[in-house]
Simulated assay, not measured.
Amino acid sequence: MGSRMMHAIIAHQVGKYFEVKDLNSFIIGGIAADANLTDKDTSHFYKGRMDDFSKVIEIDLFTEKYKHQLNHPFLLGYYTHLIADENWLNGFALSWLKNRLDHDDDIFYRYHNDFQVLNAKLLKHYNLKETIKNIFDEAEVESKVDEVKTEDIRTFIPYIIKDIDYKEPDLYEDLQVFTLDQLLGYVETSIQKSILKINQNNFLMSSKS
């Protein structure tokens, strides 16, 4: 699905839009689902399978389970993650990327190299390198969901800090599988859809506190 850095940027932009005071917690929530490295189906509320194209993210199960706590910044950040991964699942994974991964042994490595290069390009585009680095350097981590443990997130954060400390040449390296416009469109759509859904469902409430 989307990279760690994409999720951090999406959560940052959504949190800033709503002027969430506890932006750190919002962004930690935005990357938390990927911190469960042993059971991502559970942390992402997945149902179905990739091989028969039935895989979906049951976001409604998440909102129903946590409906009395969805004004918490961590949970709203988590919500943005699920929305972004739903966009990735439908717009990339099921529509064409799974096919290429199944038929081209080399594309897996080019795909992940693109993610590394995109860390640099996206942080530069949004001018967020120092902002996001400071957030994760100073993060007070406490999971608010059953699907991911606090310790999982603490173990995961150093990988994100490593993503932030990109190499300067990555800014100028060409992408091999994706295009920058394609990924910017994905990030921006995920931001817009998260804002829309939070507003439509009145999840904001006291999340600014």
Rank of each mutant, 00 (worst) to 15 (best):
R4D: 05
R4T: 07
M5E: 05
M5F: 04
M5N: 07
M6I: 00
M6A: 07
H7M: 06
A8H: 07
I9A: 03
I9S: 02
I9G: 01
I10K: 06
I10A: 11
H12A: 03
H12E: 09
H12Q: 10
Q13E: 15
G15E: 05
K16V: 03
K16T: 10
Y17M: 00
F18G: 00
E19L: 07
D22Q: 10
L23N: 11
F26P: 00
F26A: 05
G29F: 02
I31H: 01
A33P: 10
A33S: 13
D34C: 03
D34I: 02
A35V: 04
A35Q: 03
N36M: 01
N36D: 07
L37H: 09
T38R: 06
D39F: 05
D39P: 06
T42D: 06
S43W: 11
S43L: 03
F45W: 15
F45K: 09
F45Y: 15
Y46W: 15
G48V: 06
R49V: 08
M50F: 13
M50R: 11
M50I: 14
D51A: 12
D52R: 12
K55M: 09
V56H: 05
V56S: 04
I57C: 05
E58N: 13
I59A: 03
I59V: 10
D60M: 05
L61Q: 14
F62V: 03
F62G: 04
E64V: 00
E64G: 02
K65Q: 12
K65L: 04
K65N: 05
K67S: 15
K67D: 12
K67E: 14
Q69Y: 13
L70C: 03
N71M: 10
P73V: 00
P73C: 01
P73G: 01
F74E: 01
F74M: 00
F74T: 02
L75N: 05
L76M: 11
L76V: 01
G77S: 04
Y78E: 10
Y78G: 04
Y79G: 05
H81E: 10
I83C: 07
I83D: 13
A84R: 09
A84N: 10
N87A: 07
W88F: 15
W88D: 08
L89H: 07
N90A: 08
F92H: 14
A93P: 00
A93T: 08
A93Q: 13
A93C: 05
L94S: 06
S95L: 10
S95K: 15
S95E: 15
W96L: 06
W96P: 01
L97H: 14
L97V: 07
K98D: 12
K98E: 13
N99W: 15
N99D: 15
L101W: 13
L101M: 14
D102V: 01
D102L: 08
H103R: 12
D105E: 15
D106F: 11
D106I: 02
I107M: 12
I107Y: 13
F108N: 11
Y109W: 14
D114W: 11
D114K: 06
